[in-house]
Amino acid sequence: MFEIHAGLFNYWVAIALMMVGFYIVIAQGNLVKKIVGINIFQVAVFVFYISMGKVDGGSAPILDESIKVYSNPLPHVLILTAIVVGVATTALALALVVRINRSYGTIEEREIITINHKADHDEDTRS
């Protein structure tokens, strides 16, 4: 079983990491931790892409007379772009967390929901 599928091991590592990130995002209540989870997920996708670009016996895609086989440069380019975009979105998400903390005084999802419910309740009783 393992012998047959040994060549798929790289995908399985990526999937395992992806699922750890996914679990953190949906199961943990802390907003900063959720963002870390998104990052884990993201890096797993990058690993997946880069592992697809690898060619047996290939070398890094930098032209040289002595090299015959190169790995595929295309996934590298896509992931370079994705890394930078990923950091931009992380920065935006963190800014949202800071803003949430400023107006709610907490970064725990559960407490925020409680505060919102309380505010809704106040509104109902007042009207």
Binding site: N39, V43, F46, I50, S51, G53, K54, G58, S59, A60, P61, I62, S71, P75, H76, I79, L80, I83, V84, G86, V87
Partner: peptide
């Protein structure tokens, strides 16, 4: 290890 040197140093610096 997987030959993506450019991606590696972007990840190290940015990520």
């Amino acid at each position: 290890v997987m030959d993506a040197v450019d991606v590696a140093f972007t990840e190290a610096a940015v990520g």
